[in-house]
Write a protein that binds this DNA or RNA. Structure first.
Lengths: 133, 133
DNA sequence: ATATAATGTTAGGTTTTATTACATGAACTC
DNA sequence: GAGTTCATGTAATAAAACCTAACATTATAT
């Protein structure tokens, strides 16, 4: 836990996600309509995607390319989510605290600030493998 | 090597970098004027910052907060760069191939695509510690 | 042959960013 | 103390990126 939070930090605007996933804006918004992704929003209503969101879009694209349709993708992601939830529930029996997105961002912002202290080659964490190989 | 490339992928627009660093747009642009950061640009001339750029801005902010002025920061970063260069030169004697930013993005895009293949819990690489703790 | 699903395209409006110029306060210099 | 310089704020204007909504298109399934 905690790692998940970091992967959920809203960072990327539409344009970047488009080039990262090679999906059209139309597609991405369509998938959002169907609740396959739930990007955050800025105050000005612009979408902001997290690592997890991009991750998920890449999975979706993969399935699309393999001929899976919306319904199928929904099921697959549903199952995947359940598994994740179950795993978390079993490995750690922690009560999930409800945080507003705003609170979350604030929290992480300060974490980031704290982190930026010249510890350049410090311990590595956070599985960014999907993005960086 | 390769890791560096990933950290240099232009990803973040001004707004995100502002909230990530708690610096004003004016400040960030000012630091760019003074060559402390060199964000990439979109076709439409918008700045795009990489992990390394944000990283660097956090260092700059740190120094600013400690009362270091532009000149001082320049020196520090200069030295840091030299050290890095030297380390790379000694540990691996690889000829640095020149790649245009465009080529770089293309390359990484395809890497990303390739990466998005359900290997969720695969090997972790890329030191994102500055951003994720 | 129609209906549905997934995506493209276009239009009009809003938000975000870029550039440039001018303003301000703090720290120095003389 | 008056004048510089440094670092940042603020404002105006233009352009880019993004939003929603509507309609068009293409492929699939019934």
């Amino acid at each position: 836990m905690g790692d998940n939070i970091r992967r959920n930090m809203p960072l990327f605007p539409m344009g970047i996600v488009m080039s990262l996933t090679e999906l059209s804006a139309r597609q991405i918004r369509y998938y959002e309509e169907h609740d396959l992704v739930r990007p955050a929003r800025t105050d000005g209503n612009r979408r902001l995607f997290s690592f997890n969101d991009v991750d998920r879009l890449l999975e979706i694209k993969e399935m699309i390319d393999q001929g899976v349709n919306m319904a199928g993708i929904k099921k697959v992601l549903q199952v995947a989510n359940q598994q994740e939830a179950q795993q978390e529930a079993t490995t750690e029996s922690v009560v999930k605290k409800e945080l507003s997105d705003e609170e979350l961002r604030k929290l992480l912002k300060s974490e980031l600030i704290q982190a930026g202290r010249f510890n350049r080659t410090s311990l590595r964490q956070g599985d960014m493998s999907r993005f960086f190989h």
